[in-house]
Design a binder for these strands. Structure first.
Length: 586
RNA sequence: GCGUUUGUAGCUCAGCUGGAUAGAGCAUCGGCCUUCUAAGCCGAGGGUCGCAGGUUCGAGUCCUGCCAAGCGUACCA
């Protein structure tokens, strides 16, 4: 309908131009909006207002001229000028009934479109280091990333979901060393656990399993392990220097094979856990991209060589630096540390180069908001490598602060005490977790109230939408129990009987779904869909309380049944996209 | 300090990319179950859209300056 009106106005503008009333240009920005107030009709355009200045015509007069030039159309029954010069369109109510049969015909496909044109978009999200279980912060990224991916898919993009596994690099070495130290404790050695080590209970569990498997085979005396190791932070030293020395010692004492064994045991245990966790949260990745593989293929060297060839690298104080300041960054960045190890940033450059090489039309990274300072340097790297930096879009997700009622839930990664995604799912369930995560704009801080998410009362917004769906299912069950016939065709023929104000509102809400979906997807804003679903559920609940559906009048009954099953379909389509279940009964 | 994000009802947040009288949920108060699920519905109260300027037919939305908060500013990831 919007498109139709747009075309009509376009024609009007063209003819006004021919008459010399309007200058050239201007056609591009014709905006049709849904009227907020029904007294303003169904759709409105502010064209006359926006053109008035450049055309040097009073907006009211211009609006009148546009209306006069407007071609006839069956659907438009009235056009009005209102306020300072808005053009309001009133649509033939009979048109609005079409949406019901359209929804029934298209079913789960209703709302999907092809505006994406099959373009390939990669969405990379979560990508937490496999050094521990996912916590609630990752959960928000997971819910958001998967919702964005689903939305883009729904409007016709070819979406590639990817998790970048940091299975190489220093953090993994710290994990392997942490596991070994816990293993040594298990063997009976007394070691001081490093400040920078991974202290979580899961590290001990991996160490126990290792001990069960190899017994004391990997044991070395604690004195030997700690001999000449620089002091840790707690002893007045530098924790980074300390841990790096410990890693080195671990590698020397264990040798390549044994070290690799521990490293791999840790990686496998944690990555498997993450995979199961995300799968249970309703997320399926197409690709778990391994950083180590990237390194083994020499991609980092290749990337650094390219930067070198472009004159973007220099040496300072033993390290290799990238001149990112030349391309918009605040300061230059280290790519190879003075100890010869390449940085995370170097891997990331290689990874993003790889992404571009794979031919995606767009690349979306979903990052924690604390990484926002990282964006300029990645952009700089892409530019330096001659890539199309515009293809990269970074979406930021703010942290969620957990509350239980009024009390803030303490979270501290350092001590290993944090609420995991798995605990959250266990406490509030997948549906509530996803709904709450998606309820707010992703780039806003959010308070996540565990008590509210678990509440089975009207305080809880999750159930509100699901309840609408379940209620409709219940009506259909009642139909059966009362031995009433359902006649779909009769219902469709009788849709004109749906003239109650609540019914008109619902028809309008339903027809908004496809355009809302498109907008939510293109703006990467799943919360818009949540808000829509809440509003639709609200419209339905109001209708439910105001009117009986299973009435004696067969035509009216079937018309209403067709309307509410259309609502059920849209609720279900929307919830499914967000990875939330649509219950038949509650 | 610099960069960046944010500031809307008592609380948590929307606000359709500059439109018409600023909206929800929760909380508070008052109504609605012998009829399809009351996890629901209806109604009421509650606002200097951080402050001050500016841009224009029109500003919560755009620009500038203050004030306040979060994040970033590593040879960590």
């Amino acid at each position: 309908m919007k498109q139709t009106l747009k075309a009509l106005i376009q024609q009007a503008v063209v003819s006004l131009k021919d008459e010399g009333v309007l200058d050239q240009a201007v056609i591009a920005n014709i905006v049709i909006e849904r009227a907020r107030d029904s007294s303003h009709g169904d759709f409105a355009s502010n064209l006359a207002l926006s053109l008035a200045k450049s055309a040097k015509i009073n907006p009211l007069i211009l609006a009148q001229k546009i209306i006069e030039a407007l071609p006839d159309n069956d659907a438009v029954i009235k056009v009005e000028i209102a306020g300072p010069g808005f053009i309001n369109f009133f649509i033939d109510p009979n048109r609005s009934y079409q949406i019901v049969s359209q929804i029934h015909q298209q079913g789960s496909q209703f709302g999907l479109s092809k505006v994406g044109g099959g373009k390939k978009i990669q969405v990379e999200f979560v990508s937490a280091n496999p050094t521990g279980p996912l916590h609630v912060g990752h959960g928000r990224g997971a819910a958001y990333g998967s919702a964005v991916a689903s939305l883009l898919e729904a409007i016709g993009f070819e979406v590639h979901r990817e998790y970048y596994v940091n299975d190489a690099g220093r953090q993994m070495d710290i994990l392997a060393t942490s596991i070994w130290l816990r293993y040594l404790e298990e063997c009976g050695e007394v070691v001081v656990f490093p400040n920078n080590g991974y202290r979580g209970e899961y590290v001990r569990e991996i160490a126990w399993k290792l001990h069960d498997k190899v017994q004391n085979e990997y044991r070395h005396p604690a004195e030997l392990v700690l001999e000449d190791i620089p002091a840790d932070e707690a002893q007045g030293g530098d924790k980074e220097v300390h841990i790096d020395a410990l890693i080195g010692r671990t590698k020397v004492l264990l040798g390549t094979t044994q070290y690799r064994d521990i490293f791999q045991a840790g990686l496998n245990a944690i990555l498997d856990d993450i995979k199961v966790d995300l799968n249970e949260f309703g997320i399926d990745y197409k690709h778990w991209f391994s950083e180590r593989k990237l390194m083994e293929e020499g991609a980092i060297e290749t990337a650094l060589n390219l930067l070198e060839a472009g004159g973007y690298l220099y040496k300072k104080e033993g390290a290799t630096w990238f001149k990112s300041t030349q391309l918009g960054d605040d300061k230059d960045r280290v790519v190879v540390r003075d100890n010869g190890q390449s940085t995370y940033f170097a891997s990331d450059i290689a990874y993003h180069m790889n992404k571009l090489d794979r031919g995606f039309d767009q690349i979306i990274n979903i990052w924690g908001a604390d990484h926002h300072g990282y964006i300029p340097r990645i952009n700089a790297a892409l530019l330096a490598l001659g890539g199309d930096a515009k293809k990269l879009k970074v979406l930021l997700v703010q942290f969620a602060v957990l509350y239980r009622g009024d009390d803030k839930v303490p979270m501290s990664t350092r001590s290993g005490e944090f609420v995991t995604l798995r605990q959250l799912r266990g406490e509030v369930g997948k549906d509530a977790a996803r709904f709450f995560y998606l309820m707010r704009r992703s780039d806003q801080h959010m308070d996540f109230d565990l008590k509210l998410a678990t509440a089975k009362t009207n305080e809880n917004p999750v159930f509100y939408v699901q309840y609408a769906h379940a209620r409709i299912c219940s009506v259909l069950r009642q139909l059966d129990e009362k031995n009433l016939e359902r006649d779909l065709n009769l219902g469709m023929k009788s849709l004109k009987l749906l003239t109650a104000s609540y019914e008109v509102i619902l028809l309008n809400s339903l027809s908004r779904y496809p355009e809302l979906l498109e907008k939510a997807a293109l703006n990467y804003e799943p919360h818009q869909l949540i808000h829509y679903l809440r509003a639709l559920a609200n419209d339905f609940h109001t209708y439910y309380n105001a009117h009986q559906f299973l009435v004696d009048n067969v035509s009216l009954r079937n018309a209403r049944l067709n309307l509410i099953t259309a609502i059920k379909q849209v609720l279900s389509n929307g919830l499914t996209l967000l990875g939330i279940h649509s219950p038949e009964a509650m």
